[in-house]
């Protein structure tokens, strides 16, 4: 086998791409969360203007643009690779067991990464449609801050979750999606390190712990935002 194929098509190489894109998306999550947490700031402290300015920065800054394209590519690769791997893996066992007890030897979320990922993908589509598409193509209100025109993503967001008819449903969907993301991350984070071969008996426990914390804290904070907007704000 040629080395080029080795880096793209072999089972191991596909896992590298899965791991690298996954870890990159973890980084993205951190950045995205940091921005979104601004939604939790009190309104009287100028949360609206701050968030909308931030949103404008994120959609116009060239460096951020590059990063966002990387993110799109990562998502795409992660999904395509995931599908290819899942198909191959299913083919590897054409005849299933009549009776199987996988719970005896592995955690359920590690076995349902494809399913969890699909739920997350559906969520991403909904989420992009709800905010990202409107931010880019409207309809969205605009107003001026210090002579600069900004799109009012803040109000759109708050309104979406507080909507009398759809707000509760949306909040529930978001919270469930974040729980799903949590399970995906708890396995995915440490698994990515293993797939890349970044494994050492001394440091692996740290990776495992960080991965668990990451998979719990990040989605929990994300989930906090719609809960806060819907129930508290």
């Amino acid at each position: 086998m040629s080395q080029v194929a080795g880096l793209f098509n072999s089972s191991l190489a596909r896992k590298y791409w899965m791991a690298l894109t996954g870890l990159f998306l973890c980084l993205f999550l951190v950045g995205h969360l940091a921005g979104n947490l601004q939604l939790l700031l009190p309104l009287e402290d100028g949360a609206k203007d701050q968030f909308n300015l931030y949103a404008k920065f994120m959609t116009t800054n060239p460096v951020v643009k590059i990063l966002s394209y990387l993110t799109y590519i990562s998502i795409l690769l992660h999904v395509v690779d995931g599908i290819v791997l899942t198909i191959r893996n299913r083919k590897a066992r054409p005849q299933k067991y009549a009776y199987n007890k996988p719970g005896a030897n592995s955690a359920w979320n590690s076995r349902f990464m494809g399913f969890l990922g699909t739920v997350i993908l559906v969520f991403i589509v909904l989420h992009l449609n709800a905010f990202w598409a409107k931010m880019h193509w409207g309809p969205i209100d605009t107003y001026m801050i210090d002579g600069e025109e900004v799109k009012d993503l803040y109000t759109l967001t708050i309104a979406s979750f507080q909507d009398a008819s759809a707000g509760l449903g949306m909040t529930i969907v978001y919270v469930i999606s974040m729980i799903v993301l949590g399970f995906h991350l708890v396995h995915g984070f440490q698994s990515a390190f293993r797939s890349m071969g970044w494994n050492h008996p001394k440091y692996m426990p740290i990776v495992m712990t960080v991965g668990k914390l990451f998979g719990i804290i990040i989605p929990a904070l994300f989930a906090l935002i719609p809960i806060y907007i819907h129930f508290i704000l």
């Binding site: 089972s11 896992k15 083919k91 590897a92 590690s110 076995r111 440490q190």
Partner: peptide, 21 residues
């Protein structure tokens, strides 16, 4: 390692998803 992985793929085994089973 290159040859053994290549042969492993050829035999039709699946991938590792680190379930630890």
């Amino acid at each position: 390692v290159m040859n053994m992985v290549s042969q492993m793929d050829e035999e039709g085994f699946g991938n590792c998803t680190n379930t630890g089973a």
